[in-house]
Design a protein around this nucleic acid. Structure first.
Length: 153
DNA sequence: GCCAACGTTGGC
DNA sequence: GCCAACGTTGGC
């Protein structure tokens, strides 16, 4: 199975690439959208590459690269009433929500801003620049991943 | 099953 | 802070 490529959004106020660099690895909890859940549960494989994107940031930008190190498993934060991601719909014997673990690979020397991405015609089909895109994790093409990495240099 | 109301996301 | 987009909820 060929390696796949993903984009994960995070608000740096909540969790940034700097936190990621410090932590080395993290679990990607709190995804509460079914389409995103399906990507996490069904399609993400160990070794897949992840672009780490800062949303609601100054500026909005792809900030670095991570890698999936643990495939989809139940998001335990959904089971904990004290957790802000608690969801009573999710049961331990029938989990509604899933997460993966990722590890830090690198922080871009130059973060690739949303503006730069919008101005690059090679990237005009990524979900990132499409209207009303609210998915917090989604697949991107290898060519698009490579192009963004190139722009960070 | 429809759809209005509501909450959240996320760019600007 | 505003607002468009869109997912979810709940009344009917």
């Amino acid at each position: 199975m060929a390696k796949k490529y993903w984009l994960f959004k995070s608000e740096p106020n909540a969790y940034s690439i700097y936190d990621m660099e410090k932590d080395k690895t993290t679990f990607w909890d709190g995804v509460r959208n079914y389409q995103a859940r399906n990507f996490i549960r069904d399609d993400m494989k160990k070794g897949d590459q992840v672009l780490f994107y800062h949303s609601n940031a100054k500026p909005n930008a792809v900030a670095g690269i991570c890698e999936i190190i643990k495939e989809g498993y139940p998001d335990f934060t959904a089971f904990d009433p004290d957790n802000k991601h608690f969801d009573p719909k999710s049961k331990t014997d029938e989990p509604a929500w899933f997460m993966v673990d990722i590890k830090f690979i690198k922080k871009f020397k130059n973060a690739v801003t949303l503006e730069e991405i919008k101005n690059n015609t090679k990237l005009k089909n990524t979900r990132l620049v499409q209207r009303g895109n609210r998915l917090s994790v989604f697949p991107i093409k290898k060519a698009e991943f490579d192009e963004i990495v190139k722009m960070s240099k």
